[in-house]
Amino acid sequence: MTGILLAVGIVAGIGLLIGLILSIASIIMAVPKDEKAEAILEALPGANCGACGFSGCSGYAEALAKGKAEPGLCAPGGLACTKAVSEILGVETGSVEPKVAVVKCMGSLDHTTYKAEYSGIMSCAAAMKIGGGLTACSYGCMGLGDCEAACPYDAIHVNNGVAYVDGGKCRACTLCVKACPRGIIEIVPKKDMATVRCSNHDKGGVTRKLCDIGCIGCKKCEKACEQGAVKVTDFCAYVTPDLCTNCGACVEACPQHCITFFKG
């Protein structure tokens, strides 16, 4: 019995000694906290979306504290966040351009079809692994909601086979952009302008067979735009936001009605 108690005492003593050594080591080797970075992190929204170009909010906060980044890169935080960060850094608040996500597809089930019946996992990424996706158009929205599931702001929903963004809720965090396996969601300036709501790059004849609202690359929009904001590349038109004056000439010229007025 004495031997057992002695063994227990020795083990307990060793444990106590190791614990004491670790406690002392943690104090000696502790990495000092950057109070400025901690304060900035508190001011950021905590979305950890990476829209700022850094590895989440902590990465952006550290870069700001070290002077390696500028305030105003946090899209979800907006102007209020930029002001708070600027106050902590003691710098002037710069301008922040509001942005929003837009789905470059209007191929709902009223305009296109599925090429096959799909009964797998309800995920666009999963469907892409089976024959490149289930929609007739290999560029269009599959409507299985990966973007909807990724959005922390309830700003994007699938309706009749295609995703739509609620501009009033969208914070331009880019999570839906990253979630879309077909890359048809784009972050654009939140302003009134024309937007091509199609991502198809097939020749016009092929596109017409797949979707009756798809861009056919006819260049009528390009010719109608006096500002040079519309260009057709690889049979698909694109509007440069900075050049668009929202005059509506391209919208009127488009025979497929795939260019729409975008309200910022």
Rank of each mutant, 00 (worst) to 15 (best):
I121T: 14
I4L: 10
C254D: 05
N160C: 09
A194K: 01
G67V: 08
S119E: 15
T93K: 03
E226P: 01
C211L: 14
M106H: 05
A150L: 03
A125L: 15
V206T: 08
G67C: 10
K203E: 12
A84C: 07
K219P: 02
G15W: 01
A172E: 02
A65N: 01
F262P: 04
S23C: 11
T93H: 02
E252K: 13
A61Q: 00
V103L: 07
K231V: 03
Y238W: 15
A249V: 09
K104H: 13
I14V: 09
A136W: 09
G132P: 12
K36C: 00
R182D: 10
A101G: 05
P76S: 06
V102C: 03
L44A: 00
P181I: 00
G59W: 02
I21H: 04
A249T: 06
I121L: 15
A253C: 11
K99T: 07
A127S: 12
T113D: 15
L44Q: 01
R182Q: 14
S86I: 05
D192Y: 09
E97M: 09
T195S: 08
V196M: 11
T93G: 01
L73H: 06
P241F: 06
K191R: 11
R182Y: 14
H257E: 13
V8L: 15
V232K: 11
G3L: 01
D34Y: 05
C198A: 04
I213E: 15
A116H: 12
V8Y: 13
D192T: 08
C225G: 06
F235N: 14
G133M: 11
G133Y: 08
T113K: 14
L109M: 08
D154K: 13
D242L: 13
G133P: 02
A43K: 02
V85P: 01
G167L: 11
G248L: 04
C254A: 08
V158L: 03
S123P: 15
A25R: 08
I187W: 02
C221H: 00
E62D: 12
A125P: 12
M142G: 05
T174P: 05
K203A: 11
H201L: 04
N246I: 04
C244V: 10
K178T: 08
S55C: 10
V165G: 01
L79H: 10
G140N: 12
K36R: 04
A126P: 06
G140V: 14
K83F: 07
M122S: 13
